[in-house]
Every structure is written in structure tokens, then in C-alpha cells.
Simulated scan of single mutants.
Amino acid sequence: MISRLKALLTHPVLALLLRLYLAGVFIYASLHKINFPAEFADNIAGYLIVPYWLINPLAVFMPWLELVCGLFLLGGVRVRAASLLIGAMLVMFTVAVLVALIQDTPIGCGCFQSVGEPISWWTVLRDLAWLAMAAHVYFYDRLVHLDRLFMLKPEELGL
């Protein structure tokens, strides 16, 4: 029974499905922030944990990183690197939400749109679930990787 459950949880198809789900989440999350960086900068400032000189660069850079990582996951390109970066962003997001909750800062999440749901402990649980998915993709995903199809191996180059 336990071996069957382990086989199910570590199956590459599950990792592929989680990879595609995370890709969709991060692509969708990035689109509004890319189009409205000033609103996203206001959301970042609302957390009261980022130095003021870092708010605008983060508001411009982070959504593009989300988009690129999401597209890499979707296309199966550098999946381990993309899932590692997404995991790092999720750790950062979770810590920011936790700090804001502990400080009782009444702000919206800023995850998908500027005027979104307020942060709550459900936001933390959702981010932790996505972090677990990113870890699963990092360790178990091995299906449909486009970079493996088109990458030249050193022996093919005569090296």
C-alpha cells in the first residue's frame, strides 16, 4: 500500500501536471503586474518590508521573472532552474505575507491584480502548497522537456 502511494506521488505524469499548473499560475500572475508596474509597486510598498529604493526595480523585474519562469515550465526548458526560481519566489512571498500578517498590516495580496483578496492565513497555505508543487516538479519532473530534444551533446560536437 505504501509503495503504491509512493509510486503514485512520484510519478512523472503527476509532476508534468503540476508543472503545467504552476506555469499557468505564474504566467497569469505576471500579466497584470507587467502591464501596471506602478500598481504593483504600491502593493510591494504596502508590505512595509522592502526598502523604498528597491520597490520600483522589484516591481519591474519580478513580474518578468515570473513570466519567463512560467514560460520555461510550460515549454519544458530548464525546468529544474525554473522550478527552483519559482520556489525561491514563493518562499519570499510566503515570508512577506507572514510578516504582514504578524504585523497586522491590512493589505491586499497583489498576487494576481492590484485590488485583490486581502492577505490571510489561506494565502500562506496556498503559497506553501505551490511551494510543495515546485519542489515536486524539481525532483520528479522528467517528461516533455524541449531543451533535451534540441540540445547538442558534447560527443555530437566531437569534444
Rank of each mutant, 00 (worst) to 15 (best):
W130N: 12
A41Y: 07
K33M: 04
G110F: 08
L31N: 05
Y52L: 11
A129G: 12
W130P: 05
M92A: 15
Y138G: 00
W130T: 07
G87P: 02
W130Y: 15
G75Y: 12
T105W: 01
V50D: 08
Q103D: 01
I107D: 12
M92C: 11
G70A: 11
L98M: 10
L31Q: 11
L84N: 11
G75F: 15
Y28G: 11
V25I: 12
V60S: 04
A81N: 06
F112N: 02
L31D: 09
A132W: 05
R80A: 08
G108T: 15
F93L: 14
L152T: 13
Y21F: 06
R142W: 03
I102T: 04
P106V: 02
E66S: 01
L31I: 15
D127I: 00
M89A: 03
I55W: 03
W53L: 12
Y52V: 11
K33T: 06
I49T: 13
I86G: 04
L149K: 02
L98R: 07
M151C: 12
F61C: 07
I102D: 02
N56D: 11
I44F: 00
F150L: 04
K153E: 09
Y138L: 14
L73G: 14
F72H: 10
A135R: 06
P37F: 09
A81C: 07
A45C: 00
M62L: 15
S120D: 13
L149G: 03
G108S: 14
L85H: 08
R148E: 06
L131R: 00
H145V: 11
G158T: 03
S120Q: 08
G75R: 04
L131Q: 01
A135Q: 09
R126E: 03
P37E: 05
V91A: 13
A96V: 01
M89E: 10
M151T: 15
I27Y: 13
A132P: 10
A129H: 03
V95N: 03
G158Q: 06
A82K: 01
S114R: 00
Y138Q: 05
A88V: 06
L58N: 01
P106Y: 01
V144W: 14
P154R: 11
F72A: 15
M92I: 13
H32L: 05
L128G: 09
P37L: 08
I86A: 06
L54V: 07
F26E: 10
V124G: 13
I86W: 04
P106C: 00
A29V: 11
F40L: 05
G110L: 07
A41C: 02
V77M: 08
N56Y: 11
V115M: 06
H145K: 13
L131H: 01
F36N: 08
R126A: 08
N56T: 12
V68F: 10
M89F: 11
M62R: 05
L159N: 11
W122H: 14
A38Q: 14
L65W: 07
R148S: 03
I44R: 00
V91R: 02
G110C: 08
S120V: 09
N43D: 03
L125M: 11
H136G: 07
T105Q: 02
V91I: 15
A100S: 06
A82T: 05
N43Q: 05
Y138D: 00
W122K: 12
K153R: 15
F61I: 15
M151L: 13
E155I: 13
I55K: 02
V97C: 03
V124K: 13
A29C: 05
P106S: 04
L143Y: 14
I49F: 04
L58A: 10
A59S: 07
L65Y: 04
